[in-house]
Design a protein around this nucleic acid. Structure first.
Lengths: 178, 178
DNA sequence: ATTATTATCTACAATACTGTCAATAGTGAG
DNA sequence: CTCACTATTGACAGTATTGTAGATAATAAT
């Protein structure tokens, strides 16, 4: 699914990976479409649990939250999300509230980190969450190819340097706004 | 191709869309794989021409360049790029030099815009190009679904507000660094 | 222990898809 | 005009893929 998308999903391949015969899959999911819907539902759950996990970890700095977010998308979340959006079915009622929760949580953190008399616009916080989301997603898909690294270690180093730069830039913006 | 990826590409569908019979497609491209390779080559060309177009437009401000970049990815480039990276074939020799060109061009702009005695790190410029690329890509795929807008006009307004915010944030960072 | 329910499999049916072939029409060179 | 070459097509072959059916095993309930 992550490799080829819904169109590339083959019952025989899934069955082999699961160590069963393909009619067993059909017995449990009804049809190929049923399997795809189940996988999408599972992806939404995964998305929610991972992002809420980032928040529940109570990060002491924005850098921690950024690193965790980038890692979550890099670890397969991004590939699987593509099809929640390419496909027609809207994931609005199940998936999007998570992002609202993240906006609220980050806003609370910003208020707790800043000086008491500072004031923030929540639309500003929303933009930061939006940017972090699309950047983490985009880096998960494009990142490895945009970095011209000789080997895997070098790739990791460049990635970490970028994530650090990204956090630093947000901090510069934070300071300017407070 | 953009809708279902390479795995979802059907010769019969392509032939119908082109107004010919499917053996004609095979005659011209050799095989289904040949067609996919041709489409990928075409996508690389499109990527190059679009991004170089942004640079050749000689933007007077970074905001102009950002708006143009986001628009390019939104107009189908992002969907088509997914498969250049998911697929095994490395697009390194054809595709990546464009990004190096963009880094050099933006660096020249930064030097021309800033005060004469300011100094910039080109790695810093590279990070900005990287961020703009993955953000424009990510917003093209996820953006419309992350924004909970009632209608299309509202969606456009929210998108424009975000792009403006993004440019402003980069400007804050520019000022801080110079 | 018996029975109903669920899970799994092999075999098969029906269709979808890619690629081949032979025939036909079009096009340019000489 | 003729000839070689290219483009296009319908028909078809071979395979892949989804889904069904019946048989068999496992599991749970009483």
């Amino acid at each position: 699914m992550a490799a080829g998308g819904p169109a590339g999903l083959r019952l025989e391949a899934v069955a082999k990976a699961a160590g069963v015969s393909h009619p067993t899959i059909l017995h449990h999911f009804g049809s190929r479409e049923g399997l795809i819907h189940a996988l999408n539902r599972e992806t939404v759950e995964h998305l929610k649990s991972v992002l809420l996990g980032v928040l529940n970890a109570q990060p002491n700095s924005s850098d921690d939250a950024i690193t965790a977010t980038f890692a979550a998308y890099r670890e397969g979340l991004a590939q699987r999300m593509i099809w929640l959006f390419q496909g027609g079915q809207p994931m609005a009622p199940q998936g999007l509230p998570v992002f609202d929760e993240m906006v609220e949580a980050l806003h609370a953190f910003r208020l707790s980190w800043a000086s008491p008399n500072a004031s923030f616009d929540i639309e500003d916080t929303r933009a930061i969450v939006h940017l972090t989301t699309i950047a983490a997603f985009g880096d998960a898909i494009l990142g490895p190819r945009l970095r011209r690294a000789s080997d895997a270690e070098e790739e990791v180093r460049q990635r970490q340097r970028f994530e650090q730069w990204f956090g630093e830039m947000l901090n510069v913006y934070f300071r300017d706004k407070s």
